[in-house]
């Protein structure tokens, strides 16, 4: 069973994000972490490998710093890592990014693709389903459980007000949701291996893509400008003993804000 895991190195959730003077670029504090949903995806891939043998390959698209995410994957137990590194790949929308990833995945035979439900930096949640469609494969989004046997997979998904069990023919893509598993912490031996591991690289030319198909030129949705969110006014603390404050809060919500 060959499993491909798509991962993304993202700014730490607490990193400072400032808007550049031109209004179309972002200045992001250089503090990074692997997207949290991707850790569930790697863990699930390693569990599938433990049960069914095969190999786990992690792929990321990004600049050199994204190697960190690949090394984390190897430290956890992945066998191979590929960095899709090309100026032409950067600043793409979901479509352009998914096109590049799907080309890279298609280079070698595979049975399962796993990725996070969404990246928590740009919050699009588009790339997983788009990769599946580019490859003409089914996908199941936001899985909580995955069982693989005989060329098929059975997955559990949380749906509004309940749970659904879905069966799908392999190869297929699954996006991981919190609750799927508990990602392992890499062992020191894994970390050592990751430091020495060779990271394969691929450029647009390697994937048979013209630069106009990837990154910003290949994007269907483009950022016109960035702006800061509207600032909330300072909090108004409601004074008094708990009971008085509670009664005053009700009055404010009903008579001033009129939200009740």
């Amino acid at each position: 069973m060959n499993v491909v895991v798509l991962v993304k190195q993202i700014p730490d959730p607490e990193a400072l994000v400032a808007i550049g003077g031109d209004g179309v670029s972002l200045d992001i504090e250089q503090k990074f972490a692997m997207n949290l949903f991707d850790e569930f995806a790697i863990e699930e891939a390693l569990r599938i490998k433990a049960k069914h043998a095969g190999k786990v390959k992690v792929i990321t698209l990004g600049s050199r710093k994204a190697i960190e995410a690949l090394r984390t994957g190897i430290a956890m137990g992945a066998d191979e890592a590929v960095l899709l590194e090309d100026e032409a790949f950067l600043a793409g929308d979901g479509y352009a990014t998914a096109l590049v990833l799907s080309r890279a995945i298609a280079k070698e035979p595979f049975d399962i693709i796993l990725c996070g439900r969404q990246a928590i930096d740009d919050d699009r949640g588009e790339v997983g389903p788009m990769v599946a469609q580019f490859l003409g494969l089914p996908h199941v989004g936001g899985i909580l459980k995955l069982d693989v046997a005989d060329g098929r997979a059975v997955a559990e998904v949380a749906v509004e007000g309940g749970k659904e069990t879905v069966e799908v023919q392999l190869p297929a893509l699954f996006t991981a949701q919190k609750g799927l598993n508990e990602p392992r912490v890499p062992l020191i031996t894994g970390v050592m291996r990751a430091m020495k591991a060779q990271i394969a690289r691929a450029t647009a030319a390697d994937l048979g893509l013209a630069t106009a198909q990837a990154g910003r030129p290949g994007s269907k949705v483009k950022v016109v400008q960035y702006s800061p969110p509207k600032k909330k006014p300072a909090v108004q603390i409601i004074p008094g003993a708990p009971r008085e404050a509670a009664i005053e809060a009700v009055r404010i919500l009903m008579d001033v804000e009129r939200v009740l």
């Binding site: 929308d93 979901g94 479509y95 998914a98 919050d123 699009r124 949640g125 588009e126 790339v127 997983g128 389903p129 788009m130 599946a132 469609q133 580019f134 996908h139 989004g141 936001g142 749906v159 509004e160 994007s219 269907k220 949705v221």
Partner: peptide
């Protein structure tokens, strides 16, 4: 919704267009 965010990215690829999510 969970459903729309799940399948509309596929519609975008089928129609060779983009999507602005959420």
């Amino acid at each position: 919704t969970q459903r729309a965010r799940d399948f509309l990215p596929r519609v975008a690829v089928l129609l060779q267009t983009g999507i602005a999510s959420d």
